[in-house]
């Protein structure tokens, strides 16, 4: 539906170049959705399988280990049972030594949900061909996305460095933080699953930011305006909401349950 110059218009009006419209001739649009959007939906479905596999593995492995049965106040790190998340994720940048369970991760969740809102606003502005608004909301989305990834970088570095006290290991030494083979929080697989699940999600957010930066440049250059639609913003929007959606599940299954 791009703006076609009069000469091109004349050619495409000839019988030779007419778009095919028959049902079995490429004229049919399955589900009334454009090719690009439909393929984005199918990609997201396959990506959902990957994340579901991760979270299901988390469920299996968590049930395979002993649960912690005492009170949260008496909780101590041990490889004998699965740790409770509010005692692992209780740090906040700049507030060293305070016990603030899940506060930072709740903030991260709100940042990502808010970036989803600015993304819908960009899509909505694209449907009205409001180039300035599309630019504005894309920039906000990129900003919130970058803040989220930075928060995750802080969370990772805190998780890897560990607490001041560390944990007394079976061989009598004290271990601080976590790597893929040893960690101070609980069974080895607890840290492994943390790295894989939040890392895979963080990679998705990073890819999303790259796509959004492309979108912003293309909007600024007027590419979508010339094309006659802002469907690319909608497709990347679908991806971005999916990443937000995955985080909603990670938040519940990794941090709350």
């Amino acid at each position: 539906m791009s703006t076609i110059s009069p000469t091109t218009q004349a050619i495409s009006d000839s019988a030779l170049d007419k778009p095919r419209t028959g049902t079995w001739d490429g004229g049919n649009e399955p589900f009334n959705a454009s090719y690009g959007k439909l393929m984005m939906w199918f990609f997201l479905l396959s990506d959902a399988f990957t994340f579901a596999a991760f979270l299901t593995t988390y469920g299996l492995i968590r049930h395979r280990y002993q649960p912690y049965t005492g009170t949260p106040e008496a909780f101590e790190f041990s490889t004998a049972y699965w740790p409770i998340p509010e005692k692992v994720f209780n740090a906040f940048p700049g507030l060293h030594g305070f016990d603030l369970p899940l506060a930072f991760v709740a903030l991260m969740t709100m940042i990502l949900i808010f970036s989803s809102v600015t993304m819908v606003l960009a899509v909505e502005a694209g449907q009205r061909f409001d180039k300035k608004d599309v630019q504005k909301w894309l920039l906000w989305t990129i900003l919130f996305g970058v803040i989220f990834v930075s928060c995750q970088a802080w969370e990772w570095s805190h998780f890897i460095t560990g607490t001041d006290e560390g944990t007394l290991m079976n061989d009598g030494t004290r271990f601080f933080g976590a790597n893929l083979a040893v960690n101070q929080y609980g069974p080895v697989l607890f840290a492994d699953l943390f790295f894989f699940i939040t890392g895979f999600h963080g990679t998705h957010v990073f890819s999303g930011i790259c796509l959004l930066i492309y979108c912003f440049i293309a909007t600024t250059n007027g590419t979508f305006e010339k094309r006659g639609h802002y469907e690319m913003v909608e497709k990347i929007g679908l991806y971005w909401h999916f990443v937000d959606l995955v985080w909603v599940f990670v938040f519940t299954f990794f941090y709350l349950v």
């Binding site: 579901a52 979270l55 299901t56 593995t57 299996l60 049930h63 395979r64």
Partner: peptide, 12 residues
């Protein structure tokens, strides 16, 4: 999810 959590309980 239900199947693998059941499996996890069995291993436990």
């Amino acid at each position: 999810l239900v199947a693998l959590i059941t499996e996890g309980n069995a291993i436990h």
